[in-house]
Amino acid sequence: MPQNNAHYEIKDQVAVVTIKNPPLNCLDAGTKEDIGQAFTEVARFRPGVRAVVLTGSGERAFAAGADLKSFLEFDPKAAKVYLSRSQEIYTAIRDFPCPVIAAIRGYCLGGGLELALHCDIRYAANNARLGFPEVNHSLFPGHSGARSALQHIPLGKLKELVFTGRLINADEAFRLGLVEEVFEPHLVFAKALELAREIAAKGPLGVTAAKKALNISSDPAGDQGIESVIDLWAGLTATSDMKEGVRAFMEKRPPEFKAK
Results as ranks from 00 to 15, higher is better:
99 P>S: 11
160 E>G: 07
96 F>R: 03
210 A>M: 12
105 R>F: 03
230 I>F: 12
127 N>W: 03
240 S>T: 05
231 D>Q: 12
18 T>E: 09
53 V>W: 02
80 K>F: 11
177 G>N: 09
125 A>V: 06
162 V>R: 06
216 I>R: 15
224 Q>R: 14
46 R>H: 14
215 N>C: 12
243 K>F: 02
21 N>D: 06
132 F>I: 06
115 L>S: 07
19 I>P: 00
115 L>M: 14
39 F>C: 02
60 R>T: 10
179 V>L: 11
235 G>D: 14
117 L>Q: 14
82 Y>Q: 06
185 P>S: 10
140 F>E: 05
253 R>N: 09
141 P>K: 10
260 K>R: 11
85 R>H: 15
201 A>W: 03
74 F>V: 01
208 T>F: 05
39 F>W: 01
31 T>V: 09
79 A>E: 01
228 S>W: 00
102 A>E: 05
254 P>Q: 06
103 A>Y: 02
68 L>C: 00
5 N>Q: 13
81 V>K: 14
8 Y>D: 00
79 A>R: 01
238 A>Y: 03
40 T>S: 10
69 K>E: 13
128 A>H: 09
77 K>H: 09
223 D>K: 13
175 R>S: 15
83 L>K: 12
133 P>Y: 08
173 A>C: 14
247 R>F: 02
66 A>G: 08
45 F>C: 06
83 L>R: 11
68 L>E: 05
16 V>Y: 03
124 A>P: 05
133 P>G: 11
196 A>T: 06
90 Y>F: 15
61 A>H: 01
120 D>K: 08
199 I>H: 01
245 G>T: 00
113 L>I: 09
151 Q>A: 15
24 L>M: 10
136 N>L: 11
119 C>N: 02
96 F>S: 02
210 A>E: 15
50 R>Y: 02
65 G>P: 07
166 R>H: 07
233 W>I: 09
176 L>N: 07
11 K>V: 10
253 R>E: 10
102 A>H: 04
6 A>T: 01
205 L>Y: 07
136 N>C: 09
51 A>I: 01
23 P>Q: 02
46 R>K: 08
114 E>H: 07
35 I>A: 00
2 P>Q: 09
183 F>T: 14
137 H>F: 15
150 L>E: 07
192 A>T: 06
42 V>Y: 00
12 D>N: 14
149 A>T: 09
168 I>G: 09
125 A>C: 09
224 Q>K: 12
154 P>Q: 13
189 F>T: 04
139 L>V: 02
16 V>I: 14
100 V>I: 10
103 A>H: 04
181 E>C: 13
43 A>Y: 01
74 F>C: 06
99 P>W: 05
97 P>V: 00
143 H>F: 15
51 A>N: 01
182 V>S: 10
6 A>M: 00
260 K>E: 14
26 C>Y: 03
38 A>T: 03
153 I>Q: 11
42 V>D: 00
242 M>L: 14
217 S>F: 12
150 L>Y: 07
43 A>T: 04
5 N>L: 06
252 K>S: 05
50 R>M: 04
254 P>R: 08
115 L>G: 08
158 L>H: 12
90 Y>V: 04
80 K>L: 13
72 L>Q: 08
150 L>V: 10
1 M>C: 08
223 D>C: 11
70 S>L: 05
159 K>Y: 08
235 G>P: 04
225 G>A: 11
44 R>W: 01
87 Q>H: 15
10 I>Y: 03
1 M>F: 05
3 Q>M: 15
200 A>W: 06
27 L>W: 03
62 F>Q: 00
